[in-house]
Design a protein around this nucleic acid. Structure first.
Length: 469
RNA sequence: CGGGGUGUGGCGCAGCUUGGUAGCGCAUUGCGUUUGGGACGCAAGGGCCGCAGGUUCAAAUCCUGUCACCCCGACCA
């Protein structure tokens, strides 16, 4: 039996989370409390998330731009709810260039305000709309209770900002990002099932008229918001004078949206798929899909392993060679497991004597001897299979830990191990406030068929409640 | 803001009560034996004991001050 290298999830889930992050070399704590250093392996996963998301965002018509890190403090104060929502977590620069600044500068907690200022300049005519922007950036929100990836004072994200001529167009775009970009990415790449819904007024983004969210269940039953897409109505458009001249030559105010996903998704990925042996990275996301290990040196072993790598790469598999035979095999195998590499191909003298290699799978488990000629097909099939297996397992976990209830007491009880669904007409804002006293919150409002309600007053709206990160 | 706790090699900790010049596990480096599931032996490197002051022949240890971090409560959401 392998020695326990991580604190078991059942013993202490938060501890397990910290352990995997350290042992899989994903991140380290930064020198300033609440900051993090993303290590090469963690960053490689983030880069793959970025690449795929970026492609989808561009397919949705948005284009990348970059706005400054520093925002005049006065911008923030223009939208009342927005300042109020963010002021407690703002980092403000008061001194620079060796002297006190006349106007303080805020380190962006999000970029609605600066981008609003420029949108106002760029949207002159209805021909300029919709204006669809996205930026990849870091943002700062000073956190008192930081946790690596989940809540840090600085994190990396993608923030989209759009301006539209009509409310309907803005609403449709916010929904398109929510469902066709974010949910699809999480399903197809992260192998994570998410519940799509809208936020209650209490949980809404500061300054938004509607917030759409994607909630995922972690293995401890808690919820993690994986992304949000906001309809901002005309709140920011009015505050920043984002207007345009319509076809009828009338000055009209735009309707804006904003939407974002961050490095927090890494935390979600870890806690959704990870097990007691470490991370499990879904194959389409994995920076290394197949690790070809030289188990033990011997006649022609390294050459055979190199050939397997070449064959896999030729087939489009992200394969790497591990020929560190001076490091004990067990250590290397455990390392690969901690890092969640989907497939290991072990090549040693014993295998070669049989004309085969040993394929070891992280998700499905088990070792199989595979003839040299069949390695590529076997690995490719395993990768496809693992993606579906991870998704199915996560979905089953979510389903098994979600209970339909009809009273607050039952909801609280269900939230101890997972989520509860309760009719919103039963719960209401009062029930929501009551549950919040025991740290149980409404994660989102959804329809029984999984669709997103048009309004919280729609017939049949369900509140998904639980504890959240 | 109130209460409690902790600061000792990279990480985790012991030593403090009863002062005597710093130790253990893991990690790291070298050599050898190993290598098919976190190997073993021998050797080595690495510490302003949070910081400042005081008591003392002598302070990680006692005293005073100070800083940082953690937990609980309050506040906030």
């Amino acid at each position: 039996m392998p020695k326990t290298v991580l604190t078991p999830q059942s013993e202490d889930f938060p501890r397990w989370y910290q352990d995997v992050i350290a042992k899989a070399e994903l991140a380290d704590n930064g020198p300033v409390r609440g900051t993090m250093v993303i290590r090469p392996y963690g960053y490689a996963i983030w880069e793959r998330m970025q690449a795929d998301m970026d492609r989808r965002i561009k397919e949705a018509g948005a284009r990348n731009a970059y706005f400054p890190l520093f925002i005049p403090e006065s911008y923030l104060t223009r939208e009342a709810e927005h300042v109020e929502g963010f002021s407690p977590e703002l980092a403000v620069v008061t001194h620079a260039g060796g002297k006190e600044l006349e106007e303080k500068v805020v380190v962006r907690p999000t970029s609605e305000t600066v981008i609003g200022e420029y949108m106002a300049k760029w949207t002159q005519s209805y021909r300029d709309l919709p204006l669809l922007l996205n930026q990849w950036a870091n943002v700062v929100r000073w956190e008192l209770r930081p946790r690596v990836f989940l809540r840090t004072s600085e994190f990396l994200w993608q923030e989209g900002h759009t301006a539209h001529a009509t409310e309907a167009d803005a609403r449709a775009y916010a929904r398109r990002i929510h469902a066709d970009v974010y949910a699809a990415f999480m399903r197809e790449i992260l192998a994570m099932p998410v519940v799509l819904g809208r936020k209650t007024a209490r949980e809404r983004f500061a300054g938004a008229t509607n917030t759409l969210a994607l909630e995922a269940m972690m293995r401890d039953g808690k919820a993690l918001q994986m992304g949000t897409s906001h309809e901002l109505g005309q709140n920011f458009a009015k505050a920043f004078d984002i207007t345009y001249l319509s076809e009828q030559s009338r000055q009209e105010t735009c309707w804006t949206t904003s939407w974002g996903t961050s490095t927090r998704m890494l935390g979600g990925l870890i806690m959704c798929h990870g097990d007691d042996a470490g991370l499990r990275v879904p194959p389409r996301l994995a920076p290394v899909q197949a690790l070809v290990m030289v188990v033990k040196d011997g006649e022609g072993v390294v050459a055979a392993a190199e050939q397997v790598v070449a064959d896999l790469v030729g087939r489009g598999v992200r394969a790497e060679l591990d020929a560190r035979v001076d490091t004990p095999f067990g250590r290397r195998a455990v390392d690969a497991e901690l890092k969640g590499i989907p497939v290991r191909v072990e090549v040693g003298p014993r295998d070669l004597a049989e004309g085969s290699v040993t394929v070891v799978r992280r998700v499905a488990g088990g070792k199989t001897a595979v003839p040299l000629g069949g390695v590529v097909d076997t690995v490719a099939a395993a990768l496809d299979d693992d993606h579906e297996a991870l998704y199915a397992a996560a979905l089953a976990h979510q389903t098994d830990h979600t209970t339909a209830v009809s009273t607050l007491e039952e909801a609280r009880e269900a939230a101890r191990t997972g989520w509860a669904t309760i009719p919103w007409s039963t719960l209401g804002p009062e029930g929501e406030a009551t549950l919040a006293e025991s740290a149980v919150t409404v994660r989102c409002l959804t329809m029984p068929d999984g669709s997103v309600p048009e309004s919280e007053d729609d017939a049949g709206v369900l509140a998904v409640v639980g504890r959240a990160y």
